[in-house]
């Protein structure tokens, strides 16, 4: 499916695009990018997976990103049936206690990837079966991949 067709399809699912925070963009990226508000994330993701026209059954990359003001997660999706690709982005402005919904129930690969994001960005995924540190020790202070993380001993800057 082409990016326009995808965009048309997905727009139909959310009559109130404004409230769902749904925006599309193809600038500065080789994929179609969708921004969605955290509240509608699960709804969008389940539809992307289950809808026959989209059928995004392969989550090939899940990355946490620190955008400065906001923390967020970028989902790279691919359909093994139609071979089209899509990027979904979700952001949360809460840096103290960021929380997002888990997509573990939709793609099982998210279990480890979300634990990695939790480990490095401190984003908690509600509904995740095993939300604990994966790489770092339990006593580790802070979240290393955040931009404001400082560690004078372990980090060599320039």
């Amino acid at each position: 499916m082409t990016n326009e067709a995808l965009q048309n399809n997905i727009t139909k699912w959310f009559p109130d695009a404004e409230a769902a925070g749904l925006t599309f963009s193809e600038e500065e990226s080789q994929f179609l990018n969708i921004d969605i508000s955290p509240n509608n994330l699960i709804e969008l993701m389940s539809k992307l997976k289950s809808n026959e026209d989209t059928s995004f059954d392969y989550l090939f990359c899940l990355s946490g990103v620190d955008w400065g003001e906001e923390l967020g997660v970028v989902y790279h999706l691919e359909s093994t049936l139609h071979r089209h690709q899509l990027v979904v982005k979700v952001r949360t402005p809460d840096r103290e206690n960021p929380t997002l919904d888990t997509v573990y129930s939709i793609w099982k690969t998210a279990e480890f990837h979300e634990r990695e994001v939790f480990d490095f960005f401190g984003i908690t995924f509600t509904g995740h079966p095993n939300m604990k540190r994966l790489f770092l020790t339990d006593e580790w202070q802070g979240y290393p991949l955040r931009k404001d993380y400082e560690d004078e001993i372990n980090m060599i800057l320039k």
Binding site: E27, E28, S29, Q30, F31, N33, F60, C61, S63, V65, V74, H76, V87
Partner: peptide, 22 residues
């Protein structure tokens, strides 16, 4: 690199390696 997001996947001996650059 110009401002933007870039994704490249290749097949290593173990499977799909993705490089996601912002």
């Amino acid at each position: 690199l110009p401002k933007g997001e870039y994704y490249q996947k290749v097949e290593t001996a173990r499977g799909e390696l993705g490089v996601y650059i912002i």
